[in-house]
Design a binder for these strands. Structure first.
Length: 423
RNA sequence: GUGGGUGUAGUUCAACUGGCAGAGCACCGGAUUGUGGUUCCGGGCGUUGUGGGUUCGAUCCCCAUCACCCACCCCA
């Protein structure tokens, strides 16, 4: 019986992991420049936390959560998203006391029981930031700026930032009512899914892919027309700040975030060319969340993005990322005497942080040189019977073929030659 | 949860309407004994994803199952 990896998961193999390190390091570097500090929360939480925050009717809670019961019958879930745990930690650790605002970022795996597809996995890795403590529209724009600078900073060009405002709970209630009265006459012409949405979440009808539904929704009232004055103002200011930061965006009134806790600003970064799952990242303001899960009424704004889709996009634009590291020197020995002499020096060289490779199980000089060549090493260091006598070794540049004899004492000479690429 | 496609060597793919399972790349070895990358020569019995069935005979047909891909749904 051969074991296989669970469905919808994948191994990050050695050839891939340097790419992950790179995009993660870039993210850390950038968010820290904005003053964000990392928060790490457990990968499981009380199931109720997600039900409360995302909304019982959301798909995430209804069918995508990995739930389990522990030995004492407590209900837990693997986190399907990162915002609710951060909010929970914020409340639990009294982060509202003291400094006015909290700037937090996180990285890590999330879990959703979905059907896998291009750019969609059951365990996937997200990066995200949460700005907690202010309703100032500047921060909406700042959070968007972080995301935009991150993605463009990696070299991506084919990005589209889409912006919308879903208003505050009052506005969205009005809007839902307006939608219901608009769709009422067409109710039995809508697809079964949308008939259900009509009651639960009329806004979802807007991004239904069924032709008939799209046709019916053509002249639907626009959300933005149902915002109250303070929400209109907030949205306008967010746009002004984005303009100041020269971040291009398009207004898409149809952006509907899947989770219940969003208010006002909602945004997504879309990337065409990586399949149907084309949202690289999404986020928005969630002023109601913290109070909803037992904290004070504290506003917040944030986003989350997926690394898998980011890497797909980088590949799509052929943006180079680091691969497996290449040895600086590949050690080659002929005979056991040479091996005995070279091993102590090999350790010294590696101790200096020089990546040196050695595969003594290869038989011939030829085979070892071949291996050195395949490893793409810059140098081969060859020690045969001749060199044993003089306690020296041949340093060979594998690209030019040039080679030179070096004494092993003092070893610092050889180390310098390697570091300075003398030949 | 729904629909479509695919599953053969490490990898990319062949095998006419069912008739002994092959090729490129990669990998390993060799080309007069201490020099790789080019060239030449040699090297593959792999549970044809798994389990059943039909058949004299199945990679090919049928059923089931698993996985992957694509799309719906939803979203990162």
């Amino acid at each position: 019986m051969q074991y296989s990896i669970p469905r919808g998961t994948y191994d990050i193999l050695p050839e891939e992991s340097p790419k992950w390190h790179k995009v993660i390091a870039e993210f850390r570097k950038l968010v820290e420049a904005y003053g964000y500090a990392e928060i790490l929360t457990p990968i499981f939480e009380q199931a109720d936390l997600f039900e409360r925050s995302s909304g019982k009717s959301s798909d995430v809670v209804k069918k995508e959560m990995y739930r389990f019961t522990d030995r004492k019958g407590r209900e837990f879930a693997l986190r399907p998203e990162g915002t609710a745990p951060v909010a929970r930690s914020y409340i639990e650790n009294r982060m509202d006391i003291g400094s006015l605002n909290k700037k937090l970022y996180y990285l890590g795996p999330m879990f959703r029981y979905d059907r896998p597809q291009a750019g969609r996995y059951r365990q996937f890795y997200q990066y995200g930031v949460e700005f907690i403590g202010s309703n100032h529209p500047y921060y909406d724009a700042e959070v968007i700026a972080i995301l935009w600078n991150y993605l463009t900073g990696l070299g991506l060009k084919k990005l589209r930032l889409e912006l919308n405002s879903v208003g505050c709970p009052n506005c969205s209630k009005d809007y839902d009512k307006a939608l219901q009265s608009y769709f009422q006459p067409y109710l039995n012409q809508l697809c079964p899914d949308c008939q259900e949405r009509f009651e639960r979440k009329p806004r979802r009808i807007l991004d239904c892919k069924v032709k008939e539904c799209q046709e019916i929704a053509k002249n639907v009232p626009v959300q933005l027309d149902y915002l109250d004055t303070s929400c209109i103002e907030h949205f306008a200011e967010v746009q002004q700040y984005l303009d100041l930061m020269k971040i291009p965006f398009t207004i898409n009134p149809r952006i509907v975030r899947g989770l219940d806790y969003y208010t006002n600003t909602a945004f997504e970064v879309i990337y065409e060319g990586i399949g149907a799952q084309n949202a690289l990242a999404g986020g928005g303001r969630y002023n109601g969340l913290i109070e909803q899960i037992g904290g004070k009424n504290i506003p917040a704004v944030g986003f989350a993005g997926g690394f898998e889709r980011l890497l797909l996009a980088l590949e799509e634009e052929a943006i180079a990322l680091p691969g497996h590291p290449v040895p600086e020197v590949f050690i080659i020995t002929i005979g056991s005497e040479a091996q005995k002499i070279i091993i102590p020096y090999l350790n010294i060289i590696r101790g200096k942080g020089i990546y040196a490779e050695y595969e003594p199980d290869r038989a011939s000089l030829k085979a070892q040189l071949k291996a050195a060549n395949n490893s793409k090493a810059f140098y081969a260091l060859i020690m045969g019977e001749e060199e044993v006598k003089q306690k020296s070794a041949i340093l060979k540049n594998l690209e030019s073929g040039e080679q030179k004899l070096y004494s092993l004492e003092p070893i610092s000479h050889l180390i310098k030659a390697i570091q300075n690429k003398e030949i």
